[in-house]
Design a protein around this nucleic acid. Structure first.
Lengths: 217, 217
DNA sequence: AATAAAATTTAGACTTGCCTAAATTTTTTG
DNA sequence: CAAAAAATTTAGGCAAGTCTAAATTTTATT
């Protein structure tokens, strides 16, 4: 069996790997897990011993097939619990991350599959992230970041790349929600902020930092 | 904050205290927690430092008010999750103990209160145990053990004192369920087994060990 | 290319919760 | 009531996961 800590490292390696080409670095992991690089090195040696990662000293790290399977299992649990918290218990999408972070480590496969069924086999979590399959594959979505969309296009907000309450509450304040469709009017040359139109007559500027974290289709 | 281990000790001390008059012993705790007495002593010193128990060396232990409040909080969580697992996810009452044992440590008070509301503020868990109040008091039931009932009485099964799958599955096999009413025909002088009648024409013998663990009203 | 800077790893230590073996206290018994 | 037995505690150690400080390797700079 694997410890909570090991599970969290695998999940974090997975998350970093899909956002960066190449191997995941010790420092990046230290920052994400809020520990020191020396502690990360210790854990990497341990995960490598268990064949969950490929690890070359000083070179970085990547998941083995088994490691990825496990990471996706944790992510599946996390996202299903988030659906439960929002759909069944009425939490806001900005409130569920930390609780799901704990629930994802409950070790019963049957629990997860019953939960999935109870929730009606959802495809996406409350942030629009796809839910991995029971067999450990991540459904791919064709979403792109709003920051990469060309001016003039009309798109629909399908997900977010950042789950912090601060970001999600900011979205609510400026009136953006999942499923909301908008037209990208122009891209500001100075700070790369985007003028987007939601309602026929009200447009607003969205910062590049926000646009980078919005997924649209 | 308190560790999972500390929470488990508090819960175990509470459970032992209500089943035995006087203070809880180190050995009893070692047996319940499947550890060695020396390890228990270490933890008792730690819990005493945190003012969660009254501890006199060699004399045994009892919860402080704060310790009892915490123990009841854990038990409340455990029992609410059991209700969720049985009522919402369709688990059998003999399957939920170990999963609830993990879920009870999820640290969000709001989660517990939302779960309680979602479940309709249940008064009892699937084993008939009363669910402590949010403020930390244990509702009292007037139940007595079937082994203490006089011959001739008609009673209704309201709860069990033992939650192991083995015991619960045995109950199912001999045809006893929660809510089931029965008449105590006679008490065998040799082995204290009980002849109980459920259906008008079928009676069965129930061992003293089983009767000790059945709560009736 | 040599050196400075940055990233990473190693070494040694701390905490939690557990262990075994030995010492101590309490309880039981002859 | 004293000796034996049982229960409990103390002492010393171990594994997991973390840390700081020092050493090493890689990368960047002049």
């Amino acid at each position: 069996m694997h410890s909570f800590t090991e599970e969290n490292y695998l999940k974090t390696i997975y998350a970093l790997a899909i956002r960066q080409e190449g191997e995941v670095t010790t420092n990046a992991l230290a920052e994400m897990t809020a520990t020191k690089a020396a502690s990360v090195t210790d854990m990497l040696r341990k995960l490598a011993d268990k064949q969950l990662i490929h690890y070359r000293k000083y070179q970085g790290v990547r998941l083995t097939e088994e490691g990825e399977r496990l990471a996706l299992k944790i992510i599946r649990r996390h996202r299903l619990w988030e659906v439960f918290l929002v759909k069944k218990l009425g939490f806001g999408w900005d409130e569920v991350h930390d609780i799901a972070e704990e629930l994802e480590h409950i070790r019963s496969d049957e629990l997860v599959e019953r939960l999935d069924q109870y929730l009606g086999h959802p495809q996406f979590d409350p942030h629009g992230d796809p839910i991995p399959t029971p067999t450990g594959t991540m459904p791919s979505t064709g979403y792109q970041k709003l920051s990469e969309v060309a001016a003039g296009k009309e798109v629909c907000i399908m997900g977010v790349m950042e789950h912090s309450p601060e970001f999600l509450q900011h979205l609510a304040r400026i009136g953006l929600t999942l499923g909301c469709s908008l037209t990208l009017r122009e891209i500001n040359a100075f700070d790369k902020s985007l003028l987007v139109q939601i309602q026929p007559e009200s447009a607003l500027f969205v910062s590049h930092d926000v646009a980078k974290n919005l997924l649209v289709a």
